[in-house]
């Protein structure tokens, strides 16, 4: 039996959705890549047994309290501890030496979702002797994901994957050094989040709120059109100090971004860049 059918998203209903999100909630989805946005909306409709986007539009209009849940559903929370281990190895080997001598290390995780990325960074900083001078800012549009991130508790079934990724990045370091098992969860040590601030922030519509030595924005740009990618990357590069480091997803590209001219490539395969001095 096939159960794959996602409700189709007619353009007219999509326009109405854009209008509601913009006028009611100040959120602009018009420059999200349409194919993946439509698929994501279809998935939400199916999950809530809504037969059309117009029903979702009505709910968004009449139940403002539904917004947080909807944002949690529409944003993509796929992340893991040390996702793409080779990128973290490259960050440690090539970027950390450039940052180690600086008096402070302000790090911005854009679209941090459920927090595994910022935990990865905290562990990497600890193991590199840099954590004490680091300040980490973890932002996301999704309040529910941020709340989950602050708990630093994940399903125990992920333990094997996380251990494997950790070994690939920091051989010989056991996961147990940083996480314990409790009531079917894998709970990371609260000290890893001591220097982390979680902040709700919409990179599409809001300005950066600081200056950073290192910015990570991984697998978020893929959901944007080239036009929006250009705008967002400009914000990210603006927020970097001269010589600061930008890390994006390993299959993301700065091809469409004018701000790329202000960067040099530190590792093209792992998509790690440095802002020109």
């Amino acid at each position: 039996m096939f159960n794959e059918a996602l409700p189709e998203i007619p353009d007219g209903e999509l326009e109405r959705f854009f209008q509601i999100m913009l006028t009611q909630y100040g959120m602009d989805f018009r420059e999200y890549a349409p194919a993946s946005l439509k698929r994501r909306l279809g998935t939400v409709l199916k999950r809530y047994s809504l037969s059309s986007l117009s029903l979702l539009n009505q709910r968004l209009l009449s139940q403002p309290e539904y917004l947080d849940l909807f944002i949690n559903e529409i944003t993509v929370s796929t992340t893991e501890l040390f996702r793409d281990p080779s990128a973290w190895v490259a960050l440690r080997q090539q970027a950390f030496p450039l940052l180690a001598g600086l008096p402070q290390l302000r790090i911005w995780h854009v679209g941090v979702s459920t927090g595994e990325e910022v935990l990865s960074m905290a562990i990497l900083l600890q193991e590199s002797g840099l954590y004490a001078k680091a300040q980490l800012f973890a932002t996301d549009i999704d309040q529910r994901a941020l709340e989950q991130a602050q708990k630093a508790a994940y399903p125990l079934r992920l333990k094997g994957l996380y251990q494997q990724n950790l070994q690939a990045v920091l051989p010989g370091i056991p996961l147990a050094k940083y996480a314990r098992e409790e009531e079917g969860k894998l709970i990371f040590h609260p000290s890893l989040l001591e220097r982390v601030r979680f902040i709700r922030h919409n990179i599409v519509s809001e300005s950066p709120f600081g200056e950073y030595e290192l910015v990570l924005c991984r697998n978020l740009l893929i959901y944007f059109t080239p036009t929006l990618q250009d705008k967002v990357v400009t914000k990210l590069v603006d927020s970097l100090i001269p010589g600061g480091i930008l890390m994006i997803g390993t299959k993301e590209s700065l091809f469409w971004c004018k701000a790329a001219k202000r960067l040099t490539s530190l590792n093209e395969i792992e998509r790690i860049y440095r802002k020109r001095l």
Partner: peptide
């Protein structure tokens, strides 16, 4: 580990949806 999508404007998009 990425979904590959075709966008109406003539380019690919990737996604890390479920």
């Amino acid at each position: 580990d990425y979904h590959l999508l075709v966008e109406p404007e003539g380019y690919f998009s990737l996604s890390v949806d479920e």
